[in-house]
Design a protein around this nucleic acid. Sequence first.
RNA 1: GGCCUUAUCGUCUAACGGUUUAGGACGCAGCCCUCUCAAGGCUGAAAUACGGGUUCGAUUCCCGUUAAGGCUACCA
Length: 480
Amino acid sequence: MSTVRVRFAPSPTGYLHVGGLRTALYNYLFARKHRGSFILRIEDTDRNRYVEGAVENLVRTLHWAGLAFDEGPGAGGDRGPYVQSERLTLYRDHAEQLVREGKAYYAFDSQEELEAMKAEQEQRHLTPKYDRRALRLTPDEIQRRLAGGDAHVIRLKVPDDTTVAVEDIIRGRVEFASEMIDDQVLLKSDGYPTYHLANVVDDHLMGVTHVIRGEEWLSSTPKHVILYQCFGWDLPVFAHLPLLLNPDRSKLSKRQGDVAVEDYMQKGYLPEALLNFIAFLGWNPGDDREIFTLDQLVEEFSLERVGKSGAIFSMEKLNSVNKQYLRTASEARLADLIRPRLQAHGLAVPDDQYLSGVIGLMKERATTLEEFVTGCTYLYTDPLAYDEDARKKNWKPESAGYLRAVSPPLDALTHFGASDIEECVRSVAEQNGVGTGKVIHPLRLAVSGTAKGPGLFEMMALLGKSTCLRRIDRAVTTLG
RNA sequence: GGCCUUAUCGUCUAACGGUUUAGGACGCAGCCCUCUCAAGGCUGAAAUACGGGUUCGAUUCCCGUUAAGGCUACCA
């Protein structure tokens, strides 16, 4: 068997869709698993959709995710160029070859004519399909119009009365009646190829052995099969992945939540967590294991274990997975990831030792990197306000008195460690004849402004004596 | 409308005709632990869309219905 070559072929629309990320991931896993090549190819054949900087963004996002490609823009490879807009003559040559062989034909219809045709077909409840009027043109007429520079396209002449079968690893054999297949435009009037032509020509020329892509392509695969047959090329193996869905089960899209990988990057999800989560949307190893590194996924992955039904992209599981990765991430890495987030929030970046303390306290509690900042701003700056519910629940008329009582002994501490603080707080509670909670809860409110968070004593030790005393003082005066 | 695909707990899924009182995870509820939260431990509620076949036996195979989704562009 020849070496596996797969490709991820996004169009540069400005950002990488999470569905695209999963397609890229499965291609990557399959390539690595079989020691093959993973190619990145840019499908920028729609000039109207071109977005400045999109390719760079795509590459950057893939890099963030850790999905390194072997061939593609910036990565080299001897089957390039890997950007379709740089391969235009290739597509025209192939399309014209098909015309010469009678397998495709020129058409000069205007947009208006096509729309009128379609409207009429719809009115008569017929399937919209090109009626092949261009086939009635005489050779002379075609030559004359071509020479005259008339706008034209090249259409595929789909064979009559046959069945086109697609063999798909995931879905088995899927058959289509050729009558149902439209004479697809291969080369547009602006000289650019359509996806269908470019995709087939490139996959063949780039030696792609397995086409792993989303299910939305299954319906147009027979057109691709016909093209391979017209050119006399071997078919690649097809694998159409189930779609990623919105909570309402429609195809995952914007407007129903975040679909750009960058959104998750910004929210503070770790790439390996996102990848791990997304890998399980449509695939599983067959047993109960759920946490996998990229390398482990490579080891375990197989297209045979990819499911057929669409999967809803819901956040709960992602959060859970990210939490698990956060807990095991190294302190140094977390610190590096948190520093820029503090700056983005206009917070002063504390020294390494302090930040390491914050991480120690928050590691088990944070769902995202962002929560190391927004979930505990009181660790960086004095609380501006007290959480209303927490105040109601934990601040009693007698609370101020306890805090006043605990302040001097805390101040007297020569070593402000967690156990020293705890001892101090407990003895003040005892002296006042109340349970420790009567002091702890208001103290927590005073120090952090909220009712939840890390252990109080550890937190106070990190904040330091003067900060704690200052905050206690302020609580006593403002909360009374 | 037509073509194609899909159908197990709320969600992601396991089960590749019998080992199943349909398993796990997330989420949810309760309990334990506990200074709160988180983590952890224990417990619980929760599913084979429906109807026909095939078979000694169907979640598993076939057909139909229903539902959902995709495609139906000179977009990918």
